[in-house]
Design a protein around this nucleic acid. Structure first.
Length: 505
RNA sequence: GCGCCCAUAGCUCAGCUGGUAGAGCGGAUGACUCUUAAUCAUUAGGUCGCGGGUUCGAACCCCUCUGGGCGCACCA
């Protein structure tokens, strides 16, 4: 059997064979009732500070992080998920064979030990090991390198390993391990606050026959049980969440994976996590308040404060956040008064700034181009950009008082669009008209060489709206982007547990 | 999709204007009963990402491919 393809190491395989042949148990069933390493170190330090004798002791389990052999004494660093402690292993408590086996242990092996804590002559808090149990013999040479308290030597820095072999990367990089932890603490925090706000967490289909709720190229699959009928992976949960609202579930949310068959880069993964919520009888103003409160609270929960540092810039999530209409932003940041401009005037502004655009754009699309190219990057502190042009917002109610705009907002932080929300369109006839318009846009973009699948209009959804949808405020958050900000991650790949990466061969 | 950059031992890297590979860590063996990047001695590891070309000769120059990174485009 060729184990090379798994990255197994010959020397370690041989050790495993030999140890097994000698009757060693290398993969036991359990090792329970352990004390966490930080509990022991904390207790020992407390006792020392009080001038008492160290009586801390315990049974601990973890991975061998370093081995220093000194004749009939072996020092090891053992690490669990709370910390690291040195083991002092003298040969006295062990038989000759046991000690030989201990000396054969490798960095990366998982062991359990029992014994009292003490300080060595050099002053290092250590466990005097009385009993040692092998819990897993590794057969892979783990590139742990060496480390001191403030430096790491010879550790793998291969980006491919980083994203392809996450178990190795997380094992070795405590910073990224903490980031991933933070990701899931954010999930927990969101769920807590949503429950406190009276929302019901629901699910929507992942495999759909008609996809919708966003403009995106879908992933195509097929259903074996239905004669291999074409199906698609969800690009957005929106149309299903609205069915819940129609049915009388007045406050619902979902946290789900969306799948979009588009570019992969530092801020885009084909599979990404969205949170969407809908709340009956409210408009987008209420949702702005809900969002700023939620983010402030989540930030406090996982970061301990609402003021965080992202890539060296301080961001303050304390509510309320600034509100600014898109036209106002274009005026303030680009110095362009687009309110009363004709399409041609907007085009000449775009030309002036060397912004490429589709010559067939209308007023609204032009405004959005100006905003995205000239304003977004200037918006660093959390800011709600509100009231978008109607042309880019098909599922939204018209802005009260200006029928060129809709009631929509996008919070921007550090130039990143964190979420997207509307006073949802609830007129079934207008809804259908907008769908038809959207279809035309899709067909238009086909001319640009994009291969949108032929996707029928979701008639059942239109019927649902026709059954009466209460006035509803809805919002979607790109959770990965939120996590990026709160975990100070420069790329989405650092906080997506298993980011998309091309398979080998 | 397009442009630029990268790929040498398990890991980190060196390898000059082309003369068929080196170090440290890790491994093995030995010494050492308080070390901590332990130390010291000995030693084994490589189809230089794959395939082709130029050349007397290629890790090095040229081309294709594979994988990775960064820009641009599409998008959340």
């Amino acid at each position: 059997m060729d184990f090379k393809k798994f990255g197994f190491d010959d020397a370690r395989l041989e050790k495993r064979e030999t140890m097994l042949a000698e009757g060693a148990e290398l993969y036991p069933y359990s090792y329970e009732d352990c004390t966490k390493i930080n509990k022991i170190t904390d207790k020992a330090k407390r006792q020392e500070n009080a001038g008492e004798e160290i009586t801390a002791e315990g049974k601990i389990a973890g991975r061998i992080w370093a081995v220093r052999k000194m004749g009939r004494t072996v020092f090891m660093d053992l690490r669990d998920d709370t910390g690291k402690i040195q083991l002092y292993i003298n040969n006295r408590p062990f038989s000759k064979q046991e000690f030989k086996r201990i000396a054969q242990l490798d960095m990366g092996d998982i062991i359990g030990v029992e014994g009292p804590a003490f300080r060595t002559k050099m002053g290092e808090l250590s466990i005097k090991v009385k009993k040692l149990t092998i819990l897993a013999k590794t057969v892979v040479n783990i590139p742990m390198g060496k480390e001191t308290d403030d430096k790491v030597f010879y550790r793998s820095s291969d980006t491919e390993t980083k994203y392809r072999e996450r178990y190795l990367h997380w094992m070795l990089d405590s910073n990224d391990r903490e980031r991933i932890k933070k990701r899931f603490q954010i999930f927990t925090s969101i769920r807590k606050h949503m429950e406190n706000a009276g929302f019901l967490e629901v699910t929507t289909p992942t495999i759909e026959f008609i996809y919708g709720g966003a403009e995106a190229r879908p992933f195509k699959t097929s259903i074996w049980a239905l004669n291999n009928k074409d199906a698609f992976l969800r690009i957005s949960p929106e149309l299903y969440l609205k069915r819940y609202i129609v049915a009388g579930f007045e406050k619902v949310y979902t946290i789900c994976q969306n799948f979009r068959n588009e570019g992969i880069d530092a801020t885009h993964n084909p599979e990404f996590t969205m949170m969407e919520w809908y709340e009956a009888y409210t408009d987008y103003n209420t949702q702005m308040e809900r969002l700023e409160r939620l983010i402030e609270n989540v930030c406090k929960d996982v970061c301990g404060t609402a003021k965080i540092t992202y890539q060296g810039t301080e961001l303050d999530f304390t509510a309320p956040w600034k509100r600014m209409s898109m036209l106002e932003a274009v005026r303030v940041f680009a110095g362009i008064n687009a309110d009363n401009m004709s399409v041609d005037e907007i085009k000449s502004e775009l030309d002036k700034h060397n912004i490429e655009y589709d010559p067939s754009i209308n007023w609204g699309l032009g405004v959005v181009e100006l905003f995205e190219n000239l304003c977004e990057e200037h918006i660093v502190q959390p800011t709600f950009i509100i009231d978008h042009p109607i042309e880019v917002s098909p599922l939204t109610k018209i802005k009260r008082g200006d029928d060129r705009l809709v009631e929509r907002f996008e919070p921007l932080v550090y130039g990143i669009e964190l979420a997207n929300a509307y006073s949802e369109l609830t007129d079934p006839v207008k809804q259908m008209e907008r769908f038809v318009q959207q279809r035309e846009i899709q067909q238009h973009s086909q001319d640009k060489g994009q291969d949108w699948e032929d996707n029928p209009i979701d008639n059942d959804f239109i019927k649902a709206i026709g059954c009466g949808m209460p006035p509803t405020g809805g919002l979607g958050i790109g959770i990965d982007r939120l996590v990026m900000l709160l975990a100070d991650a420069p790329t989405m790949r650092d906080i997506v547990p298993f980011p998309m990466i091309k398979p080998k061969n």
